[in-house]
Design a protein around this nucleic acid. Structure first.
Length: 276
DNA sequence: AACCAGGGTGATG
DNA sequence: CATCACCATGGT
């Protein structure tokens, strides 16, 4: 894997990884909300306070503008250390998953920042993806920090939001979710919720703690654990996945899939949501 | 106009 | 534990 990661003047080249990194399907499949298309096989966005452009060139993926100092961050964010080809081989032993993979291979599960993930999935409750994106963008534009070299802004830190009122958040047009957002911000800002501490906890206990945040139920908590803490065994059960599980896996995932249920889920979710 | 959207809460059986 | 109205907003 390391031999595929090359530092070049333009940025970081991921040699031969296009096959295991479908840009559009990964960046715009409802796990992250700040990436936007910027041309053929090109996407742009902000994470961790940094701007990044991704581009597919033939078999390679380029992380344009990223240097050696940024590599550790993007390696974590894009889960570059995981052997996705091996995972795909495992998934292909399962017929429903094989059908989904034949249609849309290369979907990765990102490991985003816990705070941003918590907020965006609080905002996702009974909401649709385009509108979630709009709310998140307005949140960043309103209270985020500038990102060098771009008109974009970073995701606002908890302390920035903790001092606000629901009235001040009205421009977000997030509706009743604004109150939940503020509760989370205050818990984190006041040290009552230590996201760094959750990192260390076993998944069931981290889940319990997340459920204590207002507006966070089972589904949102599992999204946070999966997309923000890399707990790839977590399977968020939204309306789509409930249908998929009822129809295709009435007895749950087979045992060999369970350690990676969250990654399997993301491909199944995308397949059955877009192509049904 | 009614229904839906990667749900959650609080109040009822 | 299961169900249900309700929540605010925007799109069909």
């Amino acid at each position: 894997m390391e031999d595929r990661i090359l530092l070049e003047p333009e940025g970081i080249r991921l040699r031969g990884m296009a096959r295991q990194f479908a840009l559009g399907e990964t960046l715009d499949c409802g796990q992250a909300f700040r990436w936007r298309p910027a041309g053929e096989d090109r996407w742009e966005g902000v994470a961790g306070g940094r701007f990044l452009a991704l581009e597919r060139r033939g078999p390679d993926i380029f992380l344009l503008g990223a240097g050696g100092a940024d590599l550790p961050f993007w390696r974590d964010y894009f889960d570059l250390g995981r052997d996705y080809p091996a995972l795909e081989a495992l998934f292909r032993r399962n017929p429903p998953l094989r059908r989904a993979l034949d249609c849309c291979p290369g979907i990765r599960v990102l490991r985003q920042e816990p705070w941003e993930t918590l907020c965006t999935f609080i905002l996702s409750a009974n909401n649709n993806i385009p509108r979630i994106k709009g709310i998140v963008e307005r949140l960043c534009q309103g209270w985020g920090d500038t990102v060098p070299g771009t008109p974009l802004r970073s995701f606002p830190p908890p302390e920035r939001l903790a001092s606000l009122s629901v009235e001040e958040l009205a421009p977000l047009r997030a509706g009743w979710r604004s109150g939940y957002l503020l509760d989370a911000a205050r818990q984190v800002a006041e040290g009552r919720l230590e996201l760094r501490e959750l990192e260390r906890l076993p998944t069931p206990e981290a889940l319990e703690r997340l459920l204590e945040v207002k507006g966070v139920g089972e589904k949102v908590a599992r999204c946070v654990l999966l997309f923000g803490f890399g707990r790839v065994e977590c399977v968020p059960m939204d309306v789509w996945m409930k249908r998929v599980m009822a129809e295709l896996y009435p007895r749950g995932f087979p045992r060999y899939l369970r350690p990676y249920g969250g990654i399997a889920q993301q491909t199944l979710f995308h397949y059955y949501r877009t192509l049904r």
